[in-house]
Write a protein that binds this DNA or RNA. Structure first.
Length: 316
DNA sequence: GGGCAGGTCTAAG
DNA sequence: CTTAGACCTGCC
């Protein structure tokens, strides 16, 4: 088995090393995650009970590690800074390896997508460095309920406010305190007023209702990973605020379902631009996605989404 | 200052 | 089962 890149430690820093298919901008700015912040090319990320700052090393820093023979000269390297109170080093390393989907070879995956047609060749070339993050299922459910008919800036802001209100403190970094995502019962116990103060508007009822159903066991979140894709999708639709598109996002980012094919405005635009003729029915667009991309529909969707949005394909 | 944002809910045919 | 309309809110 080919050795893909891994996370290794040096002093208090972690390094993503190897033959890298890893671009923080493309990973975080495609709308799959909401708990991150960019500053001067450095991305501070919160996931589960961890906080990290990730960025591309500059050439002089790179030289240091080349000299110390950790890397060969051809390797590109990225750095993840390990914050204090981050838990044991082993847990920390393995957590981020899983989060960044390190065990998959994206060079190979994008090659396979490129073989499907020239559109995907172009889209995967454009999105090179993207990876599908593996995130917490409950966090994805709440975050993507909030995402409906919303914009990414406000989604990020609202999610952050919910975390701040619930106060599950992880630790302090650069003068800022970071909180982990709340539990279902914590959100269920928030008052209407508290939830509305996060700016989620009419989605307040959806978030509260869904969190309550999960907290009291009326809806079993553990079942999702045991169900087939179709059944898991159907089961998610029982939650208030979860429609077909949101359910697919939850399955793609929160349960590693590569087949999930979220049809949003951008995917609808680019599917019409590349493959269809004025098809507006999301269900039919999704069926075309399955037909064209098979079990890699979700991955294809991500590259197409990013390509469409960044290039403003099909703008009115 | 009206329109838009990674859609969903509801009511009605 | 498919299809209009309404919909919080904050930034462009």
């Amino acid at each position: 088995m080919k050795n893909f890149f891994r996370i290794k430690s040096h002093n208090n820093d972690l390094f993503v090393i190897g033959n890298i298919d890893f671009n923080p901008k493309k990973i975080f700015e495609n709308g799959q995650a909401f708990r991150w912040d960019e500053n001067d090319g450095k991305y501070t990320i919160v996931a589960n009970e961890y906080v990290s700052r990730i960025y591309i090393l500059n050439p002089s820093e790179k030289k240091f590690f080349v000299d110390s023979k950790i890397l060969s000269k051809e390797d590109e390297i990225f750095q993840i800074v390990r914050l204090e109170n981050a838990g044991s080093l082993y847990d920390y390393e393995s957590f981020w390896e899983n989060y960044f989907d390190m065990s998959r070879d994206y060079d190979l995956l994008t090659q396979e997508l490129s073989n499907i047609d020239s559109n995907l060749l172009e889209a995967t070339k454009f999105g090179k460095g993207f990876r599908v993050l593996k995130q917490d299922l409950f966090e994805m459910i709440i975050s993507f309920i909030i995402s409906a008919n919303n914009n990414i800036k406000r989604i990020k802001s609202s999610v952050e406010k919910i975390c701040t209100i619930c106060k599950n403190e992880i630790g302090e970094f650069d003068g800022k305190i970071y909180y982990r995502f709340p539990t279902p019962s914590q959100i269920a116990e928030l008052s209407i007023k508290e939830l509305e103060s996060t700016g989620i508007g009419y989605r307040t009822e959806y978030v509260k209702n869904t969190a309550s159903k999960i907290a009291n066991g009326e809806w079993d979140i553990k079942k999702i990973s045991t169900l087939s894709y179709d059944d898991a999708h159907k089961y998610l639709l029982e939650l208030m605020g979860v429609g077909p598109k949101v359910a697919d996002c939850i399955l793609l980012f929160g349960d590693s379902r590569d087949i999930a094919f979220p049809v949003d405005t951008w995917v609808a635009k680019i599917m019409n631009y590349f493959y269809l003729e004025n098809e507006s029915n999301p269900k039919k667009i999704k069926e075309s996605g399955f037909k064209l991309f098979g079990d890699k529909a979700g991955l294809a969707q991500q590259y197409l989404f990013y390509y469409a949005r960044e290039n403003n394909i099909g703008r009115k």
